[in-house]
């Protein structure tokens, strides 16, 4: 048993060393301006089975890939990488700064417009999935305490306390619900500067049923080798060419 544990530990250490080596190679390639190699190394790291970095480290690699795309002049793709990174690390100032710059260069409106709706959205999405979960659990425990008070004491004061706690718990659960909805559906971003045509069938000659603008976000439904079936905001489904969309869940 001890031997097995030791072997597993040695294997993990080896995997970690390999990840660090690959990452260092990607950073070195980026520094010398070899964007293609940097892209290959980091993309391989993201897709590596069993040793792919998770959490903040994964978000960092997505951010670096955004810089690679930006330096290659593919600003819309950079927007998509930064957006994907922010889903894992939503408060990272560098990622926000680069996202806004990439959006500006792509002639898109800012991700954060500064109005009420944009601010609320940013506040709700400023927590990671884990933080949102803990916040929701805290809300439920607060509700439990208020309900216990109401059950034992009764009366108007206790009832209002319970109602207030219920509302607070609902508000505290919003980030978690938002994460649940977003994590549950695989979203895609259009990364072609001219947008993308939504076709009724996965053929280039099929009728165009809708046009997607650059950086539009749609829901992934199905996939064929060169085509991806997407669902638009209004519920309309259609096929777009795979190269024109970018999966945001990385």
């Amino acid at each position: 048993m001890l031997t097995r544990i030791l072997l597993a530990g040695i294997a993990l250490t080896a995997v970690s060393a390999q990840v660090q080596a690959d990452d260092a190679a990607a950073i070195a390639a980026y520094r010398r301006g070899d964007m293609a190699t940097a892209r290959t190394e980091w993309t391989a790291l993201l897709d590596a089975d069993g040793r792919a970095p998770q959490g903040a480290e994964r978000a960092r690699i997505l951010y670096d890939l955004g810089n690679v795309s930006f330096r290659e002049g593919r600003t819309l793709e950079a927007v998509a990488w930064y957006t994907a990174s922010l889903r894992l690390r939503p408060r990272d100032a560098d990622t926000w700064a680069n996202l806004e710059e990439a959006r500006s260069r792509s002639k898109l409106e800012p991700a954060y417009r500064g109005d009420l709706s944009s601010t609320l959205k940013r506040v709700v999405r400023s927590l990671t999935g884990a933080e949102a979960g803990w916040l929701a659990l805290s809300g439920l425990l607060l509700l439990a305490a208020a309900l216990a008070f109401e059950a034992v004491r009764g009366g108007r004061y206790a009832r209002w306390t319970a109602v207030l706690a219920a509302l607070t718990a609902c508000v505290m659960c919003i980030p978690w619900l938002d994460h649940s909805v977003r994590d549950g559906s695989q979203t895609l971003m259009v990364i072609q500067p001219d947008g993308a045509s939504v076709r009724s069938e996965p053929r280039a000659s099929a009728a165009v049923t809708s046009e997607l603008s650059a950086a539009a976000v749609v829901e992934h439904v199905d996939e064929l080798p060169d085509w991806t079936k997407v669902r638009l905001e209004g519920g309309l489904e259609g096929w777009v060419q795979k190269r024109s969309v970018f999966p945001l869940a990385r």
Binding site: G55, A56, E57, A59, R60, T128, G129, A132, G133
Partner: peptide, 15 residues
Amino acid sequence: DIQTKALGGEGGSGP
């Protein structure tokens, strides 16, 4: 610039 090590972010898993 690129980041060479992760700065903050996801700290463990949540409920």
